[in-house]
Simulated scan of single mutants.
Amino acid sequence: MTTPARGPRSFLVGAAGRVLGAVFPRRAVPEPSSVRRLVVIKPAAHGDILFASAALAQLRRGFPKAEITLAVGKWFTELAAGVPHVDRVLDAGSFGTPGRYGWKDVWGFSRQLKREGFDLAVVLDRSPKVAVAPWLASIPHRAGIDSGGRGFALTVRVPWDRPVHEVDLMLDVVRALGVPVEEPRLEFVPSADHLRYAGRLMQEWDLTSDAPVVIVHPGGASNPGMTMPSKRWPATRFAALADRLVTEHDAKVVVVGHGADAPVARQMRLAMKHPSIDLVGQTTIGQLAALLKRVQLYVGNDSLPLHLAVSVGTPVVGIFGPTSPAINGPYRAAGAALVDEQACSQTRAFKPGPLEACPDCTCIEGVTVDQAAAAAMQQLTTATAKRSR
């Protein structure tokens, strides 16, 4: 289901938050040397947790004496294990995953936090229920995003009052804590086992020749708590794009995704004129990251593998519709983010709150195969030139 549009309930939550914000006290930013235990709370979802990796690197530098814990929902601990600059991952269970938790989970998570004795909580989430948990845990310093009054329980509040990339919004929280931001980027570190697995896979499928390897992910846009099919470019267009890359660049095409992506991946592969390699449902997140690190290009929708490719330094072509590249796109990445200028993500006015896609959204179909092919071929030409040096 698509994230619900902003309605009366959202308005009332914001209004109540603004009233409570006048009651809850703010506090001065703590001295970095006084912070021994710091928790970053970003329960969901995959792409957002990768976005948080940029802030985590800055917090590590700004609070050098602190033990840094990353708290994520139970569905996202595998991903969090590969995010660097973290001493420990805390499994928050269902807490913070949209549609999967209630006030009982908020109380339970607050008890977890209280037992840990944190000095500072950094909340990189907009939900008032997420922001209230560290207050219930009596964590003295609580910094985070204040979306229309929803951050009332925070002692340092960073307003979300303008369209800005999600990564930069998180970095604004870091800045509010007095930490200068230097050369931010997304990061994910595959383990040695993941890298060995990717190497064996490249050998097994004969992907170590001079022919460029392109990973394509035609599915995605599905997380615990949210599914948005309107973020998926048609499978037949991915097929046409892949065929052109094979014909014009002699590329080897590898199709990836989790098990739920199998139907759309099959549709893409059946529509192709050239053979491709099917790895759908056959890699973990870490293994996929290691494989992405070895290839010349990634092409896909706005979903985890796109941002995973960015985090390991692989050029990307991302295709967007109801979400905006300026807010959710590949962050400081080599490559391109394509969106039709008439897409709802480009024409709607900014306002804090849940994403509002247009009814029965097909905006992503405004991106043509020719546009995607031109962007992909430009990246492959650049990659080929670098390899020949």
Rank of each mutant, 00 (worst) to 15 (best):
T3W: 11
R9V: 15
F11T: 15
G14L: 05
A16W: 13
G17H: 02
R18S: 11
A22Y: 09
A22D: 05
A28C: 05
S34G: 06
P43Q: 09
H46L: 14
I49V: 06
A57I: 02
A57N: 11
G62L: 11
K65V: 08
A66V: 06
T69L: 01
L70R: 00
A71M: 00
P84K: 09
H85C: 11
D87I: 00
R88V: 00
F95H: 09
G96L: 03
P98G: 13
W103A: 12
K104W: 08
V130T: 07
P134Q: 10
A137W: 00
I145T: 05
F152H: 03
A153S: 15
H165Y: 09
L171M: 08
V173H: 04
A176T: 08
P190K: 08
A192E: 15
D193Y: 10
Y197P: 02
G199D: 15
L201D: 04
L201Q: 12
W205Q: 13
D206A: 15
L207K: 08
S209T: 15
V216G: 07
N223C: 08
P224A: 10
S230D: 14
R232D: 07
W233M: 02
H249E: 14
V253R: 09
G257Q: 09
M272D: 00
G281I: 08
Q287S: 07
Q287L: 10
L306F: 12
F320Q: 10
P325L: 13
I327N: 01
N328H: 13
G329K: 11
A333T: 03
A334G: 10
L338R: 11
D340P: 06
L355T: 14
T362N: 13
C363E: 12
I364S: 06
V367Y: 07
V369W: 06
A374V: 13
A375P: 10
R387E: 06
R389C: 08
